[in-house]
Write a protein that binds this DNA or RNA. Structure first.
Lengths: 259, 259
DNA sequence: CATAACGCCTCACGTAACTGGAGGTGCAAG
DNA sequence: CTTGCACCTCCAGTTACGTGAGGCGTTATG
């Protein structure tokens, strides 16, 4: 057994504690773990009891404390309820980080899956999707404040497969837009495209929720534009709006013919 | 609708993107998002198309990329399999972080629970426990290489309750040591204490695993000392060892009397 | 015995992604 | 005329070290 009075050099001490010489120098400099000095050589000398102190430092670092806080904590002799409070705050911070990491993790998962299925992707489309995933929480919050909980539930509480399906459909849609862009808005394929979009949107929102959507104001619709970044150019958007308008007039016309 | 050619000042742009003016200055400085300048005032001028670029930057930051990497990624026009590979690496890094956070989370949870149940705790004891939790993975690895998988399983694959129980027992044990310290090693309560310790240890290890424990070498036992930091002083350790030795001789004596 | 190789020392700069402050300009309102 | 606002630039500080230069004293080797 080692005798408890033996001393260590920085190198030995670093190896023991699995930290680095530089780290020990640093702790010495900032006064977190002061070493004694060999009078003649000026070398740092650590005593075996310093091991415990260093272990405490490492433990507290492990718990997420910064060195300054650690110094303060170690100066206090009692370790009780005051620490619990700090620990609980640490706990909450960790949970927040975990939630964020989880979000990023699934976002990357969805992105990778998309690229694998679809091959090379247009960068605008990809970034638009990533941006949507990233701000999903924000959008949910926003809708929660303005529409019915049922709609929010329906739109966001989807399974991973449903979300993947929505991603695919979106990609498909952008490809069709790129393919048909330039055609007149009354071109049958263009009309089919926008009709399909409206159907899908209706299906996604659900008929029973259309009422709460229609309560959204003009300014609301404007600000939704900023949140959901679109991969389309201004001309593409204008063209699509025209096609939509044409579709609406056609449908209205048919209805007027029926009775 | 905003016309697509309107321009923004830094302040407006910061508000739009929910970043700060300083951040935009910074991105301009490092060339990540260069702004044009108003010739007369020298003020930064952002165009609406810069919004997309900034959104992409924010998205990539969200995915965990560093600004330097982002600049490089955005310079490339194709976004395909090269990105997937990077994303997968990101994914793994995130998973590693998640595992680490999970470990810290449960460690703090156990600590808080202990302080709540036991009130004020001796700092040495507390740090000893935290240190043990922190290096649990390391210890598991160490034992895995040297003993049987069954033993490792038994020692580490415990439920949260079992671990909490072990923590409590350990605290209880340190309290008893403090209380009885100074008594002669053949004092009945001291003997009961060490006998209890041995019983608990045997129960924890399991009779069928004693064989693989005994294969550990002397040096192995030394290095285990460094990993499991003890909250006891050198004298306390010596005293406990003596008491253990006394217990062993007694038991050997009894066995010799039996037959 | 000279030299090389260690291990230690100090000093000082680099890191990532900002944040904050000091000091200055131009413009509009009170 | 002053106040306030929004902008500008330049400088410094943040965290917890990593890295490298240049130097000293001790030990191993040719």
């Amino acid at each position: 057994m080692d005798n408890p009075n033996r001393t260590y050099t920085v190198g030995e001490f670093a190896a023991l504690s699995k930290s680095s010489v530089r780290t020990l120098h640093y702790y010495d400099d900032i006064g977190l773990l002061r070493a004694q000095r060999d009078a003649s050589s000026g070398h740092r000398v650590y005593r075996s009891q310093d091991i415990f102190k260093l272990q405490q430092i490492i433990s507290l670092k492990f718990l997420g404390y910064r060195l300054e806080e650690i110094e303060e904590l170690m100066a206090r002799s009692t370790v009780g309820t005051s620490l619990t409070e700090g620990l609980r705050r640490q706990q909450e911070a960790i949970e927040a980080k975990q939630r964020q990491l989880e979000q990023v993790h699934t976002a990357i998962g969805r992105t990778v899956q998309l690229i694998e299925q679809q091959g090379e992707l247009d960068r605008d489309v990809l970034f638009s999707l990533i941006h949507t995933m990233q701000s999903e929480e924000e959008q949910r919050q926003w809708l929660q404040e303005r529409t019915s909980p049922e709609l929010v539930d329906r739109l966001f509480n989807q399974s991973a497969e449903e979300k993947a399906e929505a991603d695919r459909e979106f990609i498909e849609f952008t490809r069709e837009v790129r393919r048909l862009k330039g055609n007149p808005v009354d071109h049958p394929e263009v009309q089919a495209l926008v009709a399909g979009l409206m159907d899908k949107t209706m299906a996604r929102v659900g008929e029973e929720n259309m009422a709460s959507v229609s309560t959204l104001s003009e300014t609301d619709l404007d600000s939704i534009q900023f949140m959901t970044s679109s991969p389309f150019t201004a001309e593409e958007e204008a063209w699509m709006n025209e096609a939509m308008a044409y579709l609406m007039t056609q449908q209205l016309g048919e209805e007027n013919l029926k009775p």
